[in-house]
C-alpha cells in the first residue's frame, strides 16, 4: 500500500526541468574544471562560475521539490542523493572561496565524483534491474514524521559530503605522487597541502558522522524503543566511523603521513558508499524504507 502524493503537472514539470538543467550544468562545469587542470589556467574562474550557477539551479530544484512534496526532501534514495550532491558542492565551493582563486584543481576531481553520483541516481537504475530509484513523491510514514529525521539526515549528508571531498583529494594525492610532475599532474598542489585538505575534510566529516550516529540513536529510541539494533545500516555507519577514527588517530598520534593515510581515507569512503548504496540493495533491514 505504498501511496504517492498528487503533484500538479506544472509543479512536476518545473521540478523535472530544473533537475535536468542542474545535471547538465554540473556536466558542463566538470568539463570546465578538467580543462583547467589539463593546462588552460584561465578556465579556472570560468569553471567556478559554472559550478556556482549549477549549484543555484540545483538549489532551485530542491526548493521546488520541497514545495511539491510539502516537506523537506530528505527521504528515499533520490532525495537523499540530491541533497548529498548539493552538500558536496556547497562544501567544495566554500573551500574554493577560502582559497580566493589560488587553486581550482580540487574541483576537477570533485565534479567527476558528482557526475558519478548523479549517474547512480539516473543512469544506473536503467542498466541494473535490481536498483530501483523512484522519483515519486511519497508522503512520510508516521515513523519518519519527526524532527530528529531532519537533524539526522542533514548530519549524514554533510558528513558524506566531507568524506567525498576527502576522497577526491586522496585521488589527487595518489596521482601527484605516482606521476610526479608528469603531464597535468604538474598543476596539482603539493602532496603536503593535499594531506592537510584531506585531514580537515575528514575531521569535519567525522564530526557530522558522529552527530548522525547519535541523533539516529535518539530517534530510534523515541520511535522504536531502542537506541541501537545492529541494523546493517547502523553497523555500516559505525564501520565508516571506525575507519575514519583510525585515520585521524594514525595521522595525529602516530604521525602517519603519505600513502597509508591516503589508503585509509579511500577505504573509509568505500565504506561510506557501501552504507549508502550497498546496504540498500545487497543487505536488508528496517532502514530500507525507500
Amino acid at each position: 500500500m505504498a501511496g504517492y502524493l498528487e503533484i500538479s503537472p506544472l509543479g512536476l514539470a518545473v521540478e523535472n526541468i530544473l533537475f535536468t538543467a542542474a545535471a547538465v550544468a554540473y556536466l558542463v562545469a566538470t568539463a570546465g574544471y578538467l580543462t583547467y587542470v589539463f593546462g588552460l589556467k584561465k578556465f579556472g574562474p570560468l569553471a567556478a562560475y559554472l559550478l556556482r550557477f549549477s549549484f543555484l539551479l540545483h538549489t532551485a530544484f530542491l526548493v521546488t521539490r520541497t514545495v511539491n512534496a510539502g516537506r523537506l526532501p530528505l527521504v528515499g534514495h533520490f532525495e537523499f542523493g540530491n541533497v548529498f550532491i548539493w552538500a558536496c558542492v556547497l562544501f567544495y565551493l566554500w573551500g574554493e572561496w577560502r582559497l580566493q582563486g589560488k587553486d581550482y584543481s580540487v574541483g576537477a576531481f570533485l565534479t567527476p565524483l558528482i557526475v558519478l553520483y548523479l549517474g547512480y541516481l539516473t543512469v544506473i537504475p536503467q542498466l541494473v534491474e535490481k536498483i530501483n530509484i523512484s522519483r515519486a513523491h511519497k508522503p512520510l510514514q508516521p515513523v519518519l514524521q519527526s524532527n530528529w529525521l531532519q537533524v539526522h539526515v542533514s548530519a549524514s549528508v554533510l558528513g558524506y559530503a566531507c568524506f567525498s571531498l576527502a576522497f577526491a583529494v586522496a585521488l589527487m594525492w595518489l596521482l601527484k605522487t605516482w606521476l610526479k610532475d608528469k603531464s597535468f599532474v604538474r598543476n596539482l598542489p603539493e602532496p603536503q597541502i593535499l594531506e592537510e585538505y584531506m585531514y580537515r575534510a575528514s575531521g569535519l566529516g567525522f564530526l557530522f558522522q558522529s552527530i548522525m550516529i547519535i541523533t539516529g540513536a535518539i530517534w530510534a529510541d523515541t520511535s522504536w524503543g531502542r537506541y541501537w539494533g545492529w541494523d546493517p545500516k547502523e553497523v555500516w555507519a559505525l564501520i565508516t566511523w571506525f575507519i575514519f577514527a583510525v585515520y585521524l588517530h594514525a595521522r595525529f598520534t602516530r604521525g602517519w603521513r603519505g600513502l597509508r593515510t591516503v589508503l585509509l581515507v579511500i577505504v573509509g569512503w568505500v565504506a561510506m558508499v557501501f552504507t549508502w548504496v550497498g546496504v540498500a540493495w545487497l543487505l536488508t533491514g528496517i532502514h530500507s524504507f525507500g
Partner: peptide
C-alpha cells in the same frame, strides 16, 4: 594508541563480517 588502532580495525572487520549474516543470527 597502537593497540587502539588494532582494536578499532578489528571491530570494523568483525562488523563487516557480521553484516553479511542474517540479522538475528548475527545478533
Amino acid at each position: 594508541m597502537q593497540l587502539g588502532i588494532i582494536l578499532l580495525l578489528l571491530l570494523a572487520a568483525i562488523s563487516v563480517l557480521a553484516t553479511l549474516r542474517e540479522h538475528d543470527a548475527a545478533i
